[in-house]
Amino acid sequence: LHIEINVNGLRIELHNVSEELAERIREILEKVDDREEARRLAEELIK
């Protein structure tokens, strides 16, 4: 499954994740104000 999410102008592509996991990642990242911090957090979440 390939999912693309957009959060605060940051486009993140997720591969091989469930829709539920992608939604949780999006919800978490929406709470982060700083774009660079959101990017770093996204990288950690999808490892």
Rank of each mutant, 00 (worst) to 15 (best):
L10T: 12
E44I: 10
N16F: 10
L45C: 04
H15E: 07
I3M: 12
V7T: 06
R35V: 15
A42G: 02
H2Q: 08
H15M: 09
K31G: 14
D33T: 15
I3V: 12
R11L: 14
L21A: 05
I25L: 09
I28S: 03
N6L: 13
I5T: 02
L1K: 11
E27G: 06
I5F: 07
L41S: 01
I5W: 01
E23H: 10
E43G: 04
N16Y: 08
N6C: 09
D33C: 05
E19Q: 15
I12Q: 01
E30D: 09
E20L: 07
E20A: 12
H15P: 05
E20Q: 10
K31F: 11
D34K: 02
L1Y: 10
D34L: 03
N16C: 07
V17P: 05
E19T: 12
L10N: 10
E27N: 11
V17Y: 08
D34R: 02
A22H: 04
E36V: 08
I5N: 02
L45G: 00
E30V: 11
K31V: 08
L21F: 12
E43D: 12
E44A: 10
A22R: 05
E44Y: 08
N6A: 08
H2R: 09
L45R: 00
I46W: 07
R11A: 10
E23G: 07
E43P: 00
V7K: 04
R11I: 15
E4R: 02
S18Y: 04
A38G: 05
E30Y: 09
K47E: 12
E19S: 13
E13T: 12
L41H: 03
S18M: 04
E44Q: 11
R24F: 07
N6D: 14
L29W: 06
L21G: 02
E30A: 10
E13R: 04
R24I: 12
E44M: 08
I5D: 02
D33R: 13
V7L: 09
E36I: 06
N8M: 02
E37Q: 08
R35P: 15
K31M: 12
R26F: 07
N16M: 08
L10R: 00
V17K: 02
R39G: 06
A22C: 02
N16I: 05
N8I: 03
L45E: 05
K47N: 14
H2P: 09
I5V: 08
E30W: 11
E27I: 08
L41N: 01
E44V: 07
E4I: 15
V17L: 11
E4W: 11
A22W: 10
E4Q: 12
R24N: 06
I12L: 13
L14S: 01
L1C: 06
L45M: 11
L41K: 06
S18I: 03
S18K: 05
D33W: 13
V32I: 14
G9M: 00
E4V: 15
L10A: 02
E20K: 08
E20C: 03
L45D: 00
N8F: 01
L21T: 10
I28E: 03
E30L: 13
E19V: 14
E36A: 07
R39Q: 12
D34G: 05
L21D: 10
K47F: 13
E23D: 14
N6V: 15
A42Q: 01
E19I: 15
E4M: 12
D34M: 02
E30C: 07
R26P: 00
N8G: 12
I28V: 09
V7D: 03
D33N: 14
K31L: 12
E20N: 06
G9E: 03
R35K: 14
K31Y: 11
N8A: 10
E27C: 05
E13C: 08
I28L: 13
R24V: 10
L41C: 03
L21E: 08
I25Y: 03
V32S: 07
E27F: 08
L29H: 01
L14D: 01
L41E: 03
N16E: 06
R11K: 15
I46N: 02
R26Y: 10
R35Y: 15
I28K: 03
I3D: 03
